[in-house]
């Protein structure tokens, strides 16, 4: 059973994920109506609490909340990732006094959404915390693959890029493994976390080997400025070795799909021709993101802890 909060894919089991994906399938239909709104969360308040900027994710949650008729409040609390945890919890308590029904939290430090969930009455959805998890991104990726391929079980999924710093990679690894896919990661050695294989994935430092027979290829965004020089010699060299283009994609299956959580660094993670030639799936990811967030909001927001207040 899906818990009170959604903090990570690690906490979900396969049945939970299937329930969310099935709910999202029905939510997608609402977006195709003339009136793209249902009254389900009328009178409920959704607070977006973002300590780290993310226009895409925040907008996606905002649209999802509004399609379900929730009142959406964006509480932007930009601060350095080194902000003292006391001040974060104070912010959370202040927020709690305003009686929100669901709070979406993004923070640059792993574990902050959990700490906020511990003090809040309202359920918390993690919208990305440090290098820990980004569960709704993984759910929308699972949803996109399941719609494109008709299944997830038995597929081979190759994640390419900065596995070490990526919460998207971590959440997707948990998600695809739980749904029965084979997961491979490919990156320059410093970007592969030690002991990653204990999670059940196969790690490759050769992109060609990692792509061999893949059904799904997922490129991660490279934070050029932060990483160049320390994790790989130069952006140009990264693009030459791990950047995806049509030539390298030949090693994957003919019908392989190419995904990217966005925004794409063109010419780095994806060549221009790939970003232009197969933009379909990447834009589907964005569209599916709204359906997934509607599903998650429907399933967890406004629920009261059973047995009254605690």
């Amino acid at each position: 059973m899906i818990g009170r909060d959604l903090l990570g894919i690690e906490d979900l089991d396969r049945a939970d994920i299937e329930r969310i994906l099935e709910t999202a399938e029905h939510m997608g239909e609402i977006g195709e109506r003339e009136v793209k709104k249902v009254p389900t969360l009328r009178g409920r308040t959704l607070v977006n609490l973002f300590f780290e900027g993310s226009t895409r994710t925040q907008t996606s949650f905002e649209i999802a909340g509004k399609r379900l008729s929730a009142d959406v409040v964006n509480f932007s609390a930009m601060s350095s990732s080194l902000a003292k945890s006391e001040s974060i919890l104070d912010t959370a308590r202040t927020l709690d006094a305003m009686d929100p029904d669901v709070v979406v939290v993004r923070h640059g430090v792993a574990g902050v959404p959990k700490r906020i969930a511990d003090v809040l009455e309202a359920p918390v959805i993690n919208a990305g915390d440090g290098a820990h998890e980004h569960p709704t991104q993984a759910l929308l990726d699972l949803f996109t693959v399941s719609r494109e391929k008709g299944r997830i079980d038995g597929l081979t999924v190759t994640i390419v890029g900065d596995i070490l710093h990526s919460r998207v990679a971590r959440s997707n690894i948990y998600g695809f493994l739980k749904m029965g896919a084979e997961v491979r990661v490919a990156a320059p050695p410093p970007m592969i976390p030690p002991a990653i294989e204990t999670l059940g994935v196969k790690a490759f430092t050769s992109l060609r080997e990692a792509l061999d027979g893949a059904d799904v290829v997922m490129a991660l965004r490279i934070q050029n400025e932060r990483l160049a020089g320390s994790y790989f010699p130069s952006v140009r060299e990264y693009a030459a070795t791990f950047g995806l283009d049509r030539g390298k994609l030949r090693y994957a299956k003919d019908d392989a799909i190419v995904m990217h959580p966005g925004p794409v660094n063109r010419g780095v993670e994806l060549s221009h021709d790939l970003a232009d030639h197969r933009p379909g799936v990447i834009l589907d990811q964005v569209r599916n993101g709204v359906s997934i967030r509607m599903a998650v909001l429907y399933l967890i927001s406004g629920r009261r802890p059973s047995g009254g207040s605690d």
Partner: peptide, 22 residues
């Protein structure tokens, strides 16, 4: 036409009913 998202008892129950096809 699935009516689940229009029910008037959603906020009073803890369980979220499964949605059906529209």
């Amino acid at each position: 036409l699935d009516t689940t998202l229009y029910r008037d008892d959603l906020t009073s129950t803890n369980e979220r009913p499964m949605l059906r096809r529209t």
